[in-house]
Amino acid sequence: MTKQIKLSQIVPDNFYGMRLDQALAEMFPDYSRSRIKEWILADAVQLDKSVQNLPKFKVVGGEQVDIVADIAEDQRFSAEPIALDILHEDEHILVINKPAGLVVHPGAGNADGTLLNALLHHCPSIAEVPRAGIIHRLDKDTTGLMVVAKTIPAQTHLVEAMQAREITREYEAICYGKMTGGGFVNQPIGRHQTRRTQMAVIDGGKPAVTHYRVMEKYRGHTRLRLRLETGRTHQIRVHMAFINHSLVGDPVYGGRPRPPRKAAESLLVMIRNFKRQALHAAMLRLAHPITSEILEWHAPLPEDLVELNAALRADTLLHGMDEA
């Protein structure tokens, strides 16, 4: 479904010589420049009652601007009373700690039971915001922090901050192999050429940078802290597999379980039965989209990762680091 909006304003005189798309973005800051450009190209913008569909058109000041445009609503999805672990909420944004197993957005095979359905129930007015305010995603079985916009102005500013890499996201993970120190992976990511549901490091892919540092070393595994510069689909999982340190439990990029030699049966069972990627969005820091206040949240490790770390730590204390 769509919602029609109508906007009217006079171009300020000091905008003389400015591009139309730039001028409208300044005049209507609740909407992104890319969205305004789409409206211009779709003949939804009039200057002095005449359609103007050239984004590069130079304004002179004093023109009457009228915009009649459609914005997609998410009312085609149903609201569902799904519990949310809310860490912060105000009139503009919502920060949640997503559990494993919760799909973020409805799609093929997941028409309901998603975070979007939960958001529509928790905050019905969010249906007026595209994608119900979801500006970034976590994979179904990745846990941790997400920020959601409750209004269009908040969404516009958060999307722009995300694109400008002004939102900091840090993750914890457990990977296979012994890593000696931190570093980063700077490899482009795109759709896998033959397995279309998967991503891969490929020539011509989108730039992707993942920083990592070692938090704890185990016999045959490493506990990591990771920070994203970019936000490509499956980025951490793909990058860690690319450097031969895939995440424990990753059903797509992890390969077969690789427990350390002579591990106790309990640890063997735990690793074999860890059916999700051992990945958790642990920290989120951003400037509030309306007040500009710098805010930061931390989400504790979920119980399954706490137990896996404890088991690997006990195994290392029992056998020592040298016998993997």
Rank of each mutant, 00 (worst) to 15 (best):
M199H: 03
S34Y: 00
S266Q: 15
R272P: 00
L102M: 15
H239S: 13
A132H: 06
R33K: 13
F77I: 03
P289K: 01
V269N: 12
A23G: 12
V269Q: 13
H280C: 06
P207T: 11
T168H: 15
R137Q: 10
S246V: 09
K56E: 14
V51G: 05
I189C: 03
Q198G: 00
A127S: 14
G204L: 02
I152N: 14
M215P: 02
I189A: 03
A200Y: 02
P257C: 04
E303Y: 06
L158D: 05
D74M: 15
D304N: 12
M283N: 15
A282M: 10
T233Y: 04
H121T: 00
L84N: 08
I189P: 02
I189W: 06
L41D: 12
K206P: 06
F28T: 08
T180A: 11
V68K: 11
H121K: 02
D322A: 12
Y16H: 15
A69I: 01
E80A: 03
R191M: 04
D315C: 09
V214G: 04
D48H: 07
I5G: 12
S8Q: 13
N117W: 01
M240E: 11
R261E: 12
D21A: 05
H192C: 00
I86N: 08
L24H: 03
S78Y: 00
N53A: 12
V65C: 06
R137F: 09
E91G: 14
L145T: 11
R165I: 02
E216P: 04
M321C: 01
E26V: 11
V148R: 06
K58W: 08
K6A: 14
A324V: 14
H288K: 03
Y176K: 10
S32P: 09
N244M: 14
R191T: 04
S34M: 08
Y253H: 10
D304C: 08
S50H: 10
L7G: 07
Q46I: 00
K6N: 15
T180N: 13
